[in-house]
Amino acid sequence: MSIQHFRVALIPFFAAFCLPVFAHPETLVKVKDAEDQLGARVGYIELDLNSGKILESFRPEERFPMMSTFKVLLCGAVLSRVDAGQEQLGRRIHYSQNDLVEYSPVTEKHLTDGMTVRELCSAAITMSDNTAANLLLTTIGGPKELTAFLHNMGDHVTRLDRWEPELNEAIPNDERDTTMPAAMATTLRKLLTGELLTLASRQQLIDWMEADKVAGPLLRSALPAGWFIADKSGAGERGSRGIIAALGPDGKPSRIVVIYTTGSQATMDERNRQIAEIGASLIKHW
């Protein structure tokens, strides 16, 4: 067993022997301040990774656009098919120029040779490549099948209805392509620590998230040296922004954090800054 596999296998073990965790309302004060600064709703939840206990939450059962955070769930569904012998990570998928959609920095470079399922998941999570996500959605049967996968996990809230990039439209009061912070946090925890996926697939999923290259201005910008984070960000229309993450000190994750916002007129930089400040408060009061 590799060191990384050992780390993920012992996530519940280490967490069980940690000192009790206590909620700190100071972080919620910052979440509410972010709402004021952005002029928009902000949803927040913080779960203990081992027990699933909610440590703090704000608007945990209000719907927010998922945006690209759905790509972690998508690759979880792909990995479940791999575990069941219905898919192979090494299978190569070929596609054409007509398949390319807006923001496809990886797939646009491989029109000639195609990409493997493993490479597509890596591109979808680490670079948020939209064509990679659409190609992977095709392998599982489309958005409705991802929703069905989530329902089978016990998540009857999260739903995907459309493809990239239309799913980022974020129309107010439109339930399409949305989740709730509580539902997303619980589902992410199941994917990373539950028995739904094999140990190898859980490790692969967290490795992809740990290698995320496009979430630097968010929670990662607030992390002290030595902290662990595996995350996936999302951005959408109407001032929408979000991030889902597993993080913790001492090089291992111990909490799940989900943050979503929508309806702001603020710039992307300002949305990023507010999420980073929430992260800084979380870490300060850990």
Rank of each mutant, 00 (worst) to 15 (best):
P224M: 04
L55T: 10
C75H: 01
G263W: 05
L188Q: 02
W227D: 00
A170P: 13
K144E: 10
P165L: 06
A222T: 12
S122V: 09
S57C: 06
G90F: 14
Q274S: 12
V29A: 11
D250T: 06
E56G: 09
T27S: 14
V78Q: 03
E277A: 06
C75P: 00
L79C: 04
P65Y: 03
L146A: 13
Y260H: 00
H151T: 09
A40M: 08
Y44M: 06
L199P: 10
F228P: 00
L89D: 05
M209Q: 01
R220N: 02
G194F: 09
V42W: 13
S57L: 09
D83T: 05
P224T: 12
N130P: 02
N134G: 02
I45M: 15
N168L: 02
E166F: 11
N152G: 09
V214P: 07
K53E: 07
L205K: 00
R63D: 03
T267S: 10
A182Y: 09
S201M: 15
N168W: 03
G114I: 03
I93W: 03
F64V: 05
L38C: 07
V72S: 11
L160G: 04
P143L: 05
R271C: 12
G234F: 01
S281R: 09
G90T: 12
D207Y: 10
E108Q: 13
N152A: 12
T27A: 13
S221N: 14
I243G: 01
L120N: 01
M209R: 00
F149W: 10
E169F: 13
M180N: 13
M127N: 15
S104Y: 04
G142S: 11
W163Y: 13
V78G: 01
K109C: 11
E210M: 13
R41C: 05
V31C: 06
A124K: 01
Y95L: 08
K232N: 00
G242E: 01
E210I: 15
K144S: 09
L111I: 14
V101H: 06
E210G: 12
A182E: 07
K32W: 15
G85V: 09
S128K: 02
N134S: 03
P172Y: 08
E195S: 15
G234V: 01
P165A: 07
M67Y: 01
W163F: 07
D177W: 00
Y103M: 12
E87M: 11
N173M: 08
A266C: 14
V117R: 02
H94P: 07
A245V: 05
R271K: 06
S96E: 12
G52K: 06
A34V: 10
P181G: 04
E46M: 12
M153Y: 07
D155W: 00
R162P: 03
H110I: 05
G251T: 12
S96C: 07
V29T: 13
L136H: 00
P65R: 01
H285Y: 07
E270N: 14
L199W: 09
F228G: 05
A148I: 12
D36K: 15
G43A: 07
Q204V: 12
G52C: 04
S96M: 12
